[in-house]
Amino acid sequence: MTSVLLAVNGTLMRGLELNGNMVAAKARFVKEARTAACYRLWSIEGRHPAMQKVATGGKAIDLEIWEVPANGLAGILEQEPPGLCIGKIELSDGEIVLGVLGEAMLCDGQKEITGFGGWRAYYAAKETGTVKGSA
């Protein structure tokens, strides 16, 4: 295996704070996508999102798919905030890819933002003052 597809749903996306980690790993943007409608999303202290697959109450979440050289994947993960990990993510078309997920403890007590449908929409609402508070 020379590369893997990686779904990212937050600050690793194009134009956002940690996208440089993708570029440094020589990752290549493939496409925008959505998850199957079985995920929930939280804002972790207003700095980055965490996504979890759930049995009920989930929605489709916007994300990006990147092709990452296998030898660059570890470098990306090592720079992710604590509590984020890699798991399998189901896309809206049924495809399964690796992606960034949040551990359950990371999301405890954090602001759920599932209703925004993704980090970009939440962040945009925050920037325009539509969302109150830092989380």
Rank of each mutant, 00 (worst) to 15 (best):
D108T: 14
A60Y: 02
R47E: 15
V23E: 15
Q110A: 08
V8S: 02
K31S: 15
L16S: 10
S134R: 14
A7F: 15
M1T: 13
E112T: 04
V23S: 13
A74P: 06
R14E: 11
Q110D: 02
E80Q: 08
G75Y: 06
L106P: 00
I96E: 12
N21S: 08
E64F: 08
F29G: 05
V131T: 11
E64P: 10
A27N: 03
S92M: 07
T114Y: 04
E80C: 01
P82S: 09
I86G: 01
M51L: 15
E64R: 09
M22I: 13
R120D: 13
V23F: 09
R28C: 03
R34L: 15
E80W: 00
P81S: 01
G99K: 06
F116T: 05
A60E: 13
G87H: 05
L106M: 04
V30I: 14
G46R: 01
G109K: 11
A33Q: 09
F29E: 04
L98W: 14
G20T: 08
D62M: 12
M105P: 15
L16E: 15
L63P: 00
A104G: 06
W42I: 05
A121N: 15
R28E: 15
S3I: 01
P49S: 06
A104H: 12
G83W: 00
W42D: 05
Q52S: 06
W119H: 08
M13G: 10
Y123R: 15
A70H: 09
E67N: 14
